[in-house]
Amino acid sequence: MYRILFSLVFRHMDPERAHHLAFAVIRILPRLGLSRLVSRFTMPRTDLHVKALGLTFPSPFGVAAGFDKNGTAILGLGALGFGHVEVGTVTAIAQPGNPRPRLFRLIPDRAIVNRMGFNNEGAASVATRVEAARSARRRPVIGLNIGKSRVVDVADAVADYRVSARAAASVADYLAVNVSSPNTPGLRDLQAIESLRPLLAAVKEEAGATPLLVKIAPDLADDDIVAVAGLAVELGLDGIIATNTTISRDGLVTDEKVVAAAGAGGLSGAPLAHRSLEVLRLLREHVPGTMCIVSVGGVETAADVRTRLAAGATLVQGYSAFIYRGPLWARSINRGLDRMSPLV
């Protein structure tokens, strides 16, 4: 049914407008008192819970940062079957993001190009919503993803991240440091070890007992990924999220003119699957087995999730396939995992 609706309606709409329409429906589920009823239909029937970061995740599958930027649909997304919701990316200073259009579909590739630019209402405002959602009896695990404010110079990034971490640490179940989006000038430079070490140390100080993870780009060279893994271990981080979007356009089947028209931005979706899996395996070779690795990038099906778990992921996230598979996407993954024999 959703595929027909997508083909007839959504694919002809501006992607960001379509997102907001779908988002409005997700947000209203708790207000109509439907969350509990819907979750009975969407959550796993068998015990798929995962213990990680000192938390219990009802399913290994969650929604990645970028979908709910301001924490307005946490409970609705939980009702749809996501075991955790990573809110954000939020910044210390509220910002509108880049000019529209800034979200593009590459339908033949089941991919998305975005250059949203961390549009959000600011860490303090979003933290208030997260705190309210945490008080609900039935809720997903809630992460808060923090990034650099666009108006802040890279040289002042540490202080800027401190502000966001201070606002988020007391309300989020875990924090994620985003230094890997291609849509904020200079941000990816912070992945260099000499820049990343003081940044992560500062955020860790602000986070206190709240679990802390760092999110990295798929475009890093393997040696750099190993270096980040070593730094995460050295600083006592709780985990790594791999990976963010890519600036690569290699191997796409979408017409070159369509790709060129989409322009700059991060590519996500199916074309990212191979590299994301490579990075996961590389990380798992270089961090302790107890460290949480969240695998994200090109995940569409229960089989994809199972592959990531078998390769060493603790948790798995998705985002782009939501657009192509619709509101029952998390349910289909949970039900698919239900039918598979557990990993030994």
Rank of each mutant, 00 (worst) to 15 (best):
F118E: 00
V113A: 00
P108N: 08
P108K: 13
R134E: 09
P108D: 07
P96G: 04
N114G: 03
F104W: 06
A132T: 11
R134F: 07
R115N: 06
A94K: 04
E131N: 12
R110E: 15
R100C: 10
F118G: 00
N114L: 08
F118Y: 08
G122T: 07
A111E: 11
G97F: 06
T128S: 12
A136S: 14
P101E: 11
M116P: 02
P108F: 13
N98Y: 05
R134W: 07
V126T: 07
R139F: 12
R115S: 05
R134A: 11
M116G: 01
N98H: 12
A111N: 07
R129T: 08
Q95G: 02
A124H: 10
E131H: 13
V130K: 01
V113E: 01
P108H: 09
T128F: 01
G122F: 02
G122E: 01
R105V: 11
R137I: 08
G117H: 04
R139G: 08
R138L: 14
F104Y: 07
D109E: 10
A127T: 05
V113L: 08
A123V: 11
A111P: 09
N120S: 04
G117P: 04
P96R: 05
R110I: 14
N114K: 01
N98G: 05
G97W: 01
F104I: 08
Q95R: 03
E121F: 02
I112C: 03
I112R: 04
